[in-house]
Design a protein around this nucleic acid. Sequence first.
DNA 1: GGGAGTGGTATCAAAAAGAAACCACGTATC
DNA 2: GATACGTGGTTTCTTTTTGATACCACTCCC
Lengths: 132, 132
Amino acid sequence: MVTSEKPASRPQALCFNVYAKDCPTRLVLDRLGDKWALLILDRLQNDVVRFNALKRDIHGISQKVLSQVLKNLERDGLISRTVYPTVPVTVEYSLKPLGMTLIQAVSSLTHWAETHMSEIEKAQHLYDASKD
Amino acid sequence: MVTSEKPASRPQALCFNVYAKDCPTRLVLDRLGDKWALLILDRLQNDVVRFNALKRDIHGISQKVLSQVLKNLERDGLISRTVYPTVPVTVEYSLKPLGMTLIQAVSSLTHWAETHMSEIEKAQHLYDASKD
DNA sequence: GGGAGTGGTATCAAAAAGAAACCACGTATC
DNA sequence: GATACGTGGTTTCTTTTTGATACCACTCCC
């Protein structure tokens, strides 16, 4: 009864499809579908920002997760990390061109959250009330 | 030494700011900054879809997480859940007007992932090569 | 020499995600 | 008439991820 398994050995060559489990775009969506990554990218939209400044600005992020997400974003070619050999070392993060092509979509999301918050709260109250 | 705790009793009335830890928009970004939520919303963009259809289409999501995310999206007023008392019960999910105002931002992200995937892979290879 | 600021990493507990089983119901299959 | 399947979930358990905290080397300030 295990004979029904299909290896899904299709090469998937030119079809990028976020719905497919084995599609590489899923890995991108894993990265982008993360509130911290969205906030970091949004914060870098217009500024070059240092590590501890990001940590201070993005209230609630832990140092561990911040360095982790930054490392991934850097690996994806979205941001650049520049180290200056100053006395306490200075590290600056900024958007790379590829990241800039993404920033519009990202800020759409964060901006949507800010502009539609009141409607969401209203819906939540309605929902909670209907559930008792 | 506990005297330094500030209650943060500021009313924060009209300032919605995703960077602030205690801002309600953070809760929205928590929801939206989730790959499964993005995929579900994207899938509902043009269709009314049933539970198990979503589960089949969005490859890799578990039943538990699917029902969980759907419940949250419904609570936020983004999607509607309609139950038909058919023989095996039929449940349909679809976007509500509020969700439709969001869908452009969401599909921007998923579409970005699909169109820029090759550049990301290139960046990843470069990064990995530089690290060894 | 005590404290602060630089940019992280290491450690450990708590929370979340994933895998799998289970549920009631009815229908089709054998 | 027992078995398996499909419906839309919930429950349980394990594994992964997160968050909090401490720690690191280094230097400046007083």
